[in-house]
Nucleic acid binder design. Structure first.
Length: 886
DNA sequence: CCACTCACG
DNA sequence: ACGTACGTGAGTGGT
């Protein structure tokens, strides 16, 4: 097999990488303020091509400077270009370091461009029988394509490429690689700033070269060309065309002083890479490297191994301590316990024996109200310790929670990444210590992970004060102290309590659904005339749109869309469509809910979800393993799943209360809109009163169901950050009509109009938006040049304060709920939170009082300029809930 | 590991 | 001109 050579156009890829990452440039700055986005992008590209082409030899060519033989023959060559931004030029030395450490040669040659070096080497490589790939961002290099040399041109970012072979060139550009030079000669190149022939663009140039075969051949026969303005131009500007041809031609014989023999690629120097990644703060690349390379240089915090003998040293600690129980997996309900660290600065104690936590000495210390605990992820610690029968309280500082409040993006459950984000380097990622996937394990040498734990404890302590200071500066102390920190304990309680599931209900459903799926499957195969995988959108697309020739309504990036909306439109066309819709619905219920929930029922016959408190960008919770916030309710078929959710005690009931139209009420409050506020105060159905206003109905006139539906959609649209395009799509009207709806809406609710304008302005000025409790979301894309990114940020600016303040509201209610239930001596337990709804289980006898207490707590959680409305329901299962009448 | 689809608020 | 409604998680197929 022939040897493989990789040639990279260094300058071109650097430019591509820099501009591809330009939107997020702020994120790529190292601890010294050095920009690193281009080096980062270059590295991504490099990994990708090394993996794809597995070269035996490699070279990255750079331009030597601005002056080349081309500028000597044509003054304006590459003239008019903006100066390279300093944010990019400062990165060139580092990309060279990266390449040196990666074991890849670099080369540059005075008076020549990188292209010429590449062209020359590629020629030599062709002669020597190599298979060559050239990677560039510049399509001009496709003139170098041969049977042996492929040119990969980056598109959309830096890791996607389009590979030009001779056949692909003909197909795509209509000319051969050599002809491509002549095309360029005629059409010119605006970025390299040479003109070509007047009035000749790409289309004409390609046609001419295809017709005559080459520039030379064309000029030989130009006399036979029939008279035209174009002919005149070609004749008058022959000299220019010839000159452009020279400019466009990449040299194949540059006087280079290296040869193929110098380019052998044998792999990277990992030590040098580690050093460079550290310098550039490339955490993700660091992680990919062999852990042993890294651990040798990791910081080490001194610690003492904790045993029964020195327990007293810890037990006597006063004031504040750091505690961390190390879990091997994310699911703390069942994760393996690795060990723990406890102590104070310079006095860290580590042990693998978690049963020490159950000794009176430590158990008392951890529950001692006078000794404050600093931790990482309080909720995880509370739940995991509870498995040992140990209580931890009071928690003062939670590094994860504080970090998330300061910036919702700094929320990794890996302590090292969070510490990094706050410029603390003294701890490495869990992945480096424990590995991941199938290789996840506790290291054989205990000192490895014990040092890691000591490092973690030191990090928690070191970041405590700075993060508190930042919370203070952001006016977020109350959010932290009064909401999120106490909430973590409330959530821990809910998760530990769990919700009872009647497994037999699910297994009965499973059998029925299996039969139905089989029937549908048979019927679908019959209609299709063959068997295929109905679950595969790809195979389904072939059946529907190629075999059955149904009209294509919408396409996805990869093929035909078969989403519900599309199938619904196709339903009248063929009976198979309805069957597929039914199949999809049943299959979803079967796999995600019936089988999915059966899988996670534990020995106590309950399901214990985990709420992620530091994940969403808005302040909402999310729920995982399983997600109990998306149990079906909209359609009867799926809704039946809720029959399996039952009380855990005899004579108890499921009780649920939800906030009615909470987001619109918050909008009425934050916007101060008088009309909207008075609509809520009147107590009328809000979508109906909105319809009244935007359709200008007279007092006696009735709101039709369609008006209400459209008004409701507009209300939703406003909450989501309205756009005519989005609204039009949603309610199936033209963008023009949608625009009118929105205009009418804003005329009727001028306060809302001003809110949308103001909040976007605020986002632009301060870079973030806030909820009522000063929860923050940064929106860097608000300044993006890209329309899509910027529009998205603007909609987010409108939506986040609303969705986020609603999240604030229910969180406050949840904290007060625990206290209220206790104060009233109720046995009722809060089980679930579903964004605007709280689900409880309670003795049936408590329901009347519970209803009053819950409604009172939820109603008064926050004082808004509009009333809040709470609706309560009760029943024997989550399915059978019935409204409670006054 | 990503794309698609679909469940919820 | 650009071309999306906001926020989530899980299962499946396909590379």
């Amino acid at each position: 097999m022939s040897k493989r050579l990789l040639l990279i156009d260094g300058n071109s890829i650097m430019f591509r990488a820099f501009f591809a990452m330009h939107q997020q440039m702020d994120r790529f700055v190292n601890h010294d303020g050095l920009h690193t986005a281009a080096v980062y992008g270059f590295k991504l590209m490099l990994d990708s091509v090394l993996k794809t082409y597995k070269p035996d030899a490699a070279l990255v060519a750079f331009d030597a400077g601005k002056k080349t033989f081309r500028t000597a023959m044509y003054d304006d060559y590459k003239g008019g270009r903006d100066k390279t931004p300093s944010e990019l030029s400062e990165q060139f030395p580092y990309v060279r370091q990266l390449l040196a450490a990666s074991g890849i040669q670099t080369y540059e040659l005075p008076n020549y461009e990188a292209d010429d070096i590449i062209g020359t080497i590629a020629s030599q490589a062709d002669a020597a029988g190599y298979t060559t790939t050239i990677v560039t961002g510049d399509r001009d290099l496709t003139q170098l394509v041969t049977e042996q040399t492929t040119v990969a041109v980056t598109k959309r970012g830096v890791t996607n490429t389009e590979e030009y072979t001779p056949a692909y060139m003909l197909e795509k550009l209509g000319v051969t690689p050599t002809q491509y030079i002549d095309v360029k000669a005629l059409m010119g190149d605006s970025s390299d700033n040479y003109p070509g022939v007047t009035k000749i663009g790409e289309k004409t140039a390609v046609n001419l070269i295809r017709e005559y075969g080459s520039l030379d051949a064309m000029y030989e026969q130009i006399d036979q060309m029939k008279p035209s303005k174009r002919k005149e131009n070609l004749q008058n500007e022959e000299k220019i065309a010839r000159q452009c041809q020279t400019l466009a031609t990449i040299k194949r014989d540059a006087p280079i002083t290296i040869g193929l023999a110098d380019l052998a690629y044998t792999g990277a120097d990992e030590g040098a890479l580690v050093e460079l990644y550290r310098e550039l703060d490339f955490q993700s690349f660091l992680k990919q490297l062999n852990p042993t390379t890294i651990t040798a240089e990791t910081p080490t915090t001194a610690y003492t191994e904790l045993t029964a003998a020195n327990l007293a040293d810890v037990a006597n600690m006063t004031g504040s301590i750091v505690f961390h129980l190390e879990l091997l997996q994310a699911n703390y309900h069942e994760a393996d316990l690795v060990g723990f660290v406890i102590g104070q600065p310079d006095h860290w104690y580590v042990s693998a024996d978690v049963s020490l936590l159950q000794t009176p000495a430590l158990k008392t210390l951890l529950a001692n109200p006078d000794v404050k605990k600093d931790v990482f992820n309080a909720k995880a610690q509370i739940v995991a310790l509870n498995r040992l029968g140990v209580t931890i309280t009071p928690i003062a500082f939670d590094l994860l929670l504080a970090s998330y409040l300061l910036d919702t993006n700094e929320n990794s459950d890996d302590l090292a990444l969070v510490a990094q984000a706050h410029d603390y380097q003294g701890v490495v990622s869990d992945e480096i210590i424990y590995g991941k996937g199938a290789k996840l394990a506790i290291p054989e040498t205990p000192a490895t992970w014990m040092t890691h734990l000591a490092n973690k404890a030191a990090a928690i302590h070191a970041l405590r004060q700075p993060l508190f200071d930042e919370l203070q500066a952001n006016d977020q102390v109350a959010l932290y102290t009064d909401i999120e920190r106490p909430l973590s304990r409330v959530l821990a309680e809910m998760e530990m309590t769990g919700i009872r599931i009647e497994a037999t209900t699910l297994t009965t459903m499973q059998a029925e659904l299996t039969t139905r799926l089989a029937e549908l499957e048979t019927a679908i195969y019959e209609d299709a005339g063959e068997e295929f995988n109905i679950n595969s959108p790809k195979q389904l697309g072939v059946i529907l749109f190629e075999k059955l020739k149904l009209p294509v309504i919408k396409k996805t990036k990869t093929g035909y869309s078969t989403a519900v909306g599309v199938l619904e439109k196709l339903r009248p066309e063929a009976p198979i469509v309805d069957k597929i819709l039914q199949y999809r619905q049943v299959a979803k219920i079967q796999s995600t809910y019936v089988a999915g929930l059966l899988k996670v029922i534990r020995d106590d016959h309950k399901i214990h979800t985990r709420y992620l408190q530091t994940l969403t960008q808005t302040g909402r919770l999310s729920s995982v393993e399983p997600n109990l916030q998306n149990i079906p309710t909209r359609f009867e078929e799926g809704r039946k799943i809720r029959q399996a959710f039952v009380p855990s005690e005899p004579d108890w009931v499921i009780f649920s209360s939800d906030y009615s139209q909470v987001e619109l009420r918050i909008l009425a409050h934050v916007s101060g809109d008088q009309n909207m506020q008075s609509d809520f105060k009147s107590g009328e159905d809000i979508h109906a009163s909105t319809a009244r206003r935007i359709f200008h109905l007279l007092p006696g006139e009735e709101v039709t169901p369609n008006m209400r539906r459209q008004a409701k959609a507009v209300n939703f649209g406003i909450v989501y950050g309205i756009s005519d395009y989005g609204l039009a799509q949603n309610i199936n009207v033209t963008p023009k009509q949608a625009k009118e709806f929105i205009q009418n809406y804003f005329d009727e609710f001028p306060g809302v109009y001003h809110y949308t304008k103001d909040i976007v302005k605020i986002a632009r000025e301060q870079g973030y938006v806030e909820t009522l409790t000063h929860r923050r979301r940064y929106l860097p894309d608000i300044h993006a040049k890209n329309f899509n990114l910027r529009s998205f940020a603007e909609r987010t600016a409108m939506n986040t304060p609303i969705q986020g303040s609603a999240a604030d509201l229910i969180k406050i209610a949840m904290i007060k709920m625990g206290q209220a239930l206790q104060a009233h001596g109720l046995q009722a337990r809060m089980l679930l939170q579903i964004h605007d709804e709280l689900v409880f289980e309670a003795p049936a006898s408590e329901v009347p009082e519970l209803r009053r207490v819950v409604a009172e707590v939820m109603d008064s959680a926050m004082q808004l300029d509009v009333p809040l409305k709470v609706e309560s329901k009760v029943g024997p299962t989550w399915y059978d809930l019935k409204p409670i009448e006054d």
